[in-house]
């Protein structure tokens, strides 16, 4: 992978200057390559990885396993894209194994997610079944351990 993209995947909140010095390129090249990656949709967006409990976010998240009927020309794509368009859907992946789509949904409470599944998702033509699994607690999110506070720190000075 492009080292610039790799670096941004780990931390997109760095100045162009730091990135430039780290990769041995100019700041203007960093800006140009980031702009190109954005316009080519290599970079889809930037967001912070948040401990939602600490942030006071009481919304609920569910993983919904969806089985769907593939279509003659588009396979799973048309329906998967249609499902992805709902604002409640945070992530949507085609999976190997016992079901077809893993759909991560966020709602303001259990009922909200239940209504989405019952009214929007299950009723789509081609959806064969759904199984909804609610997330109870986050231990690691976006590559970061949640609440890592009890880890032992290094000594500040050592030989």
């Amino acid at each position: 992978m492009d080292p610039l993209i790799e670096l941004l995947r780990n931390n997109s909140n760095r100045t162009h200057k730091d990135i430039a010095l780290t990769l041995g390129i100019s700041e203007s090249e960093v800006a140009a390559r980031m702009a190109a990656a954005e316009s080519d949709t290599v970079i889809l967006g930037y967001s912070a990885v948040v401990d939602r409990l600490k942030a006071g976010d009481r919304r609920v998240t569910a993983l919904i396993e969806v089985r769907i009927t593939p279509e003659p020309n588009g396979g799973f794509d048309r329906l998967a894209k249609r499902i992805s368009k709902f604002d409640q859907v945070r992530e949507c992946f085609l999976m190997s194994g016992g079901y077809d789509l893993a759909v991560i949904v966020e709602g303001k409470d259990l009922l909200d997610v239940a209504n989405f599944v019952a009214e929007k998702l299950s009723t789509l033509g081609g959806v064969l079944s759904t199984a909804t699994r609610f997330q109870l607690k986050a231990y690691k999110e976006g590559g970061f351990v949640v609440n890592p506070g009890d880890d032992e720190a290094r000594l500040p000075v050592s030989p």
């Binding site: 000594l155 500040p156 000075v157 050592s158 030989p159």
Partner: peptide, 8 residues
């Protein structure tokens, strides 16, 4: 303190 003083 931001430490650049470690050896590990």
């Amino acid at each position: 303190v931001i430490s650049l003083g470690v050896g590990e």
